[in-house]
Each structure stands twice: as C-alpha cells, then as structure tokens.
Nucleic acid binder design. Sequence first.
DNA 1: TGCGATCCCATACTTCGGTATGGGTTTGCT
DNA 2: AGCAAACCCATACCGAAGTATGGGATCGCA
Lengths: 218, 218
Amino acid sequence: MASGFHSVAAQLDTAGAKLASLVLVVDDDPDMRSSLTDLFLSVGLDTRVFASTSEFLGYSLPDRPSCLVLDLRLPGSSGLQLQAVLGEQGVPIPIIFITGHADVLTSVRAMKAGALDFLPKPFRDQELLDAVNDALRRDAKRRVGDRELGKIRGLAEQLTPREIDVLRGVGRGLLSKQIAYELGISEITVKMHRSSAGRKLNAISVADMIRKIELLGL
Amino acid sequence: MASGFHSVAAQLDTAGAKLASLVLVVDDDPDMRSSLTDLFLSVGLDTRVFASTSEFLGYSLPDRPSCLVLDLRLPGSSGLQLQAVLGEQGVPIPIIFITGHADVLTSVRAMKAGALDFLPKPFRDQELLDAVNDALRRDAKRRVGDRELGKIRGLAEQLTPREIDVLRGVGRGLLSKQIAYELGISEITVKMHRSSAGRKLNAISVADMIRKIELLGL
DNA sequence: TGCGATCCCATACTTCGGTATGGGTTTGCT
DNA sequence: AGCAAACCCATACCGAAGTATGGGATCGCA
C-alpha cells in the first residue's frame, strides 16, 4: 500500500468500528424512537428501534457490540421485566434506562440488577451518547474475552472423558504417577492422555495448559 | 472437650462470627444514630456511629468484615464526597446509602460509583438489615481473597530481582533454556533462580507456581 | 461384520526440571 | 578489611515429562 493512504485507512477503520456497533432502542413513543434514531445515526451508530418488549424479544441479537436503550414504562411488560428476562436468559447486553416517570426505588432496583445507567427524561443528548459509548465499549471488551473462551471451549469438546480426568489432575498440580494411582491406571497411559489433551487444546507449554484448564473451570 | 459442649460451642461460634462483623454509621441526626445502633445491636451486630464524614475519616478501620451505612446529606462534605474519597484511597468497604432527600440523579450517581444499596427514608428495618447483611457477607468474602493474596505477596517480597525476571519467563511458558537466552545467562543459573524462587513462594508444583505468578501479576 | 473411537499397556529414548557439590565475582554495609 | 547478599557458572546425577513404536481390548454403529 502507498504510504499516502495511511491516514485514509485509519479513518475508514474508525468508521468501520462505529458501524460495527449497534444500539437497540425499546420505547413506546414514536417521536422518541425517531429522535433517538436520528441522534445515534448523527454520530454514525447503527440503530434498531422497537415499540415493545415483546417486539424486542422477537428480534435475534446479531453478533456485534451492542447495547440496549430501554424505556422503563412500557405497554405490556415493563423495562424492568425485560431486564429480568434478559438476565435469566443470560443475555449480557448492557442496558441504559431512560424514563419520564423516574422514582428512586425503581432506579435503584434497575441499577442493582446491573443496569449501566439510568437517565430521567429530559436528558441532554450528550449524556445519553456518553452512556451509550461507554456501554458499547464494555460490550466490545466483553466480547473479546468471550470469544477467547469460546475458542478454548471449542477445542475442549474434542477431549475424551478420560483426558478430562487426567487434566483435572494436572490442574491440581499432581504428577503423572499420582494421577495414575488415583485413576487406577498406569503412568504411561496417563502420559498418553496428557499429551493427547495438550495437543487438542493447542497448549504450547505447561503454563499455557494450566491457564486453559483454569479457564475451562476444571 | 466433653461432647455435651458441642452445641454450646456452636452457638458461641455463631455469636463470634456476628461479633466479628462491624457496622459503621455516618449520620448527622442523633436520633437516627441511636435508633440505628439499637437496631443493629438487637441483631447482634457491633456498631460504631459518626456524626460527620471528617469524624469518620479520623477513625481507622479495624481488620474486620464491615460495611458503611451512610447518610447522603451531611454537614460539611456529603456522603457522595465521602464515597469518592474512599474510592480514591482504595478503601473497598461496601456502602449503603440512606437519605431523607432522595432524588433519582443522586441515587444513580451513588450506585454507579459502586454503592451496594440506596434506601430513601423512611425504610423498613428489615430492608436495611438485609442490605447490611449482604454487604457484610460480601466484605467477608473479599477479605478471604485479599488475605490469600497478601500471604503470597509477603512471600514474593523475599524474591530477588533476578528471580522475578526468571519467574516472568516461567509464567510465559518459556523453557529454562529460552529464559537463559533472553537474559543472557546460562541455563543452569536460570534453574537455580527458578528453584530458589519456587522455594520462597512455597510452590509445591508447577501448576501452583504458575497460579501464584499470575496472582502476583507478573 | 468390520471399522473407528476410546481406552489400555510396555519398552526405549530424549529433554527438561530440579538438586547437589563446588566453585567464582561484584556490591554494599559494618 | 571483612562479611553477607546477590549474582554467576560448571559437572554430574535423578526423576519426571514427553515422544515413538508397537501392541491389545471393548463398544457402538454403519
């Protein structure tokens, strides 16, 4: 590539990163939906809007850094209920509440349940944008870690039950001899499983192997 | 010990665990201070009360599971300011806010800054007790982890600079040979440092050693 | 019924970690 | 000047990890 393109490439990169992020909005007020869409689009953030929690739940989340801007009071089930449902389902999307009818008890409950922010209307555009950017940053960071873990878990699926038994011993710092005794098999067989497991996990060193064993929660 | 004393011993143990916990209260209202003291004492929780943030800051926290029940509005500096100060100083004590003049913005700010709960007055005694018990449980748990880390850090102080260099290599999964090359010394010397460091850290196995290296953040 | 996966074992060998023994140097403090 | 601490190195040996080679047994499924 010609060196003259460096700054252009950097700009494209930044734009690409922003486009990769997605803001989900759930609000029953059509005016709010459209003004929020405008707001987010104006700073280059991709946006999807929903009028109710059920509409949102019918939408399958794409694999992109994203966050949820959620109105508290909604027809049907409330924003808090949606937060609870997402929590039960283990959906880790960061949530920012917005509401016109704020009270302390509700805000505290939402925050204790893990909301990232809670903005009473009216709020300044910049407040919401700051919160959204923070949320997107966190989600992106979480995704990096999750992907790493997912890769290792994928490799771990190749492991046979016996190999897992052996790895558990390795993680506890036992010698092959001791693992053999515990499992009632010979030392050489333990070594086989051990090295076979190491190959499957792509463990390039003992340290690496132990880290991966810990990550897998063995 | 006679077996007849078992149940008595168990009771004493439970009482001991409660006595080991401490509730700190900062509130400018003398009535509130005394009623909270009564409340906590009635369930066997040791309590200290303070009328202002400066009075509290003059008190050195004992090494016991504890939590802070903090009034938001205080003469002098506010509860939020105290929270900020404690945060800056790295004092990890869990905070439960109570206040008669609650507004959403403040409650959200307090929660975002890490408060465990935020109770507008009037609240039911049981609400506060639940929050306090949760806070004490968390603090106790944190202390267990911290003590473990403290022990290892204590051992790590015995390490010489060179031993730390070598441990860094071990943590990266390098062979002694490779570490020797990087440091520009011979393999046998690396082994010396390595085993010497292992002895100092009380590492009973390679797995144990690597775990400790990770904990120390090398 | 045959094939693949999983599990098991043995012998032999290499490499690595770890220890022991027995040295050496520099640096800094008493 | 003497001494301790930290650093360095060599030879030699042991035990453990890991690999290679060459087997055997069971089980489920195509």
